Simulated assay, not measured.
Amino acid sequence: MDHVSPCEAEARPYNAVSSRWRALFGGAARKVPLDAGFGCPNRDGALATGGCIFCNARGSGTGLGSRMPLAGQWAYWSQRLRARWGQELALVGYLQAFSNTHGPAARLAAVLRELAALPDMAGLCLATRPDCLDAEKIALLAAFPVKEFWLELGLQSSNPATLARIRRGHDAACFAQAVRTAADAGLKVTAHVMAGLPGETRADWDATVDFVNALPVAGVKFHNVYAAKDTELARMHLAGEAPLPELEEYADFVACALARLRPDVVVHRLHADPAHGELVAPAWAGARRRLHNTIAEVLRVRGVRQGMNRTERT
């Protein structure tokens, strides 16, 4: 989440999570990255071993899960964040690495007890796969004692051919069922979707946004596709098998998606940020300020407002 002034947040033409959190917590908020040491069924052999073609070896986490307990990670990152942004900063825990409900429910319950004991936690975001949830785990998540809780679920695309191509390991129906079950339990679900996946067209992207619109999804994260070191996608790209979008093309994807997206859906992210040293291509994915400004300019020039071109789906 970008750190922005109240005026900048109000000026955004979409329902930004930063604005929501400023209103909810009475000031700015930042995520505290936490690695609980969970694995992924798409890597540990429960489902497959290769993982999704875009996923790095750390599962987009910090890698601290095997070296530092959650309390130590919380203290380390929260001190750094508040030293930079101020002591009044609201802190939202973020379990991002791999699939944070993978394994037995007892393991999840133990991790949630650790998290509940962390001091001064304003909220929690927990990322996982839709095929790593069941009724017992959803009940544990729904009972977590925090002011703001978001369950983040990876979809990436609603196209079955794309999901097979990126080795996702589940279908869109699995995602839809997980969203409905979680929403019925009172959880706010954030959907992760990726624009520019190999073999996809603009029509595929529009269909994914419409698919998310038709579900009881409360939030969304837009991700640009980039090739990280030691991933299958990097190999494919370097071999000429997987062209990646240009910056202007990605900005167009985001603008069109926001125009179609329900106005009530909270936008948690407009683009992904590669970890230091992992980016192979495209180079623009590592230029965060340029990427942010390009998207903002496209939205301004086109007069895009979230939901302005919403298409009703049943």
Rank of each mutant, 00 (worst) to 15 (best):
D252V: 12
S78D: 11
W74L: 07
A127Q: 07
R269V: 10
L89K: 08
Y94Q: 02
V266S: 03
R288S: 14
R67D: 07
L153M: 07
E8C: 03
P216Y: 02
A164I: 03
D210M: 06
R30P: 00
H170C: 08
H292L: 14
L112Q: 07
P145D: 14
A83V: 02
C174T: 15
R129M: 02
A71Q: 13
N309K: 14
Q96S: 11
Y14H: 09
V4A: 15
L187C: 01
R235L: 06
E249K: 06
A75V: 00
F54T: 05
D184T: 11
K229E: 11
Y14M: 01
P119Y: 13
P145T: 11
A287V: 05
Y14N: 02
R67E: 11
D134Y: 02
A83K: 12
D206Q: 13
A214P: 01
E241P: 06
L153F: 04
A275K: 12
E148N: 09
L279Q: 09
H237Y: 15
Y14C: 04
L258W: 03
P216F: 04
A176E: 14
E278V: 14
P104Y: 04
A283W: 00
A116Y: 13
P274V: 02
E200M: 13
A234L: 03
F54Y: 15
A9Q: 12
R313P: 10
L270V: 10
A207D: 13
V301D: 12
V267F: 11
N15A: 03
V220Q: 04
E152P: 00
A139F: 01
T231L: 02
A116R: 13
S158Y: 07
W74P: 11
E278I: 11
R290A: 14
L291H: 14
A127D: 01
S18L: 08
R168I: 06
W85L: 15
H223R: 14
L141W: 03
P282A: 09
F98T: 05
Y76K: 03
L261T: 00
L112H: 05
E241G: 04
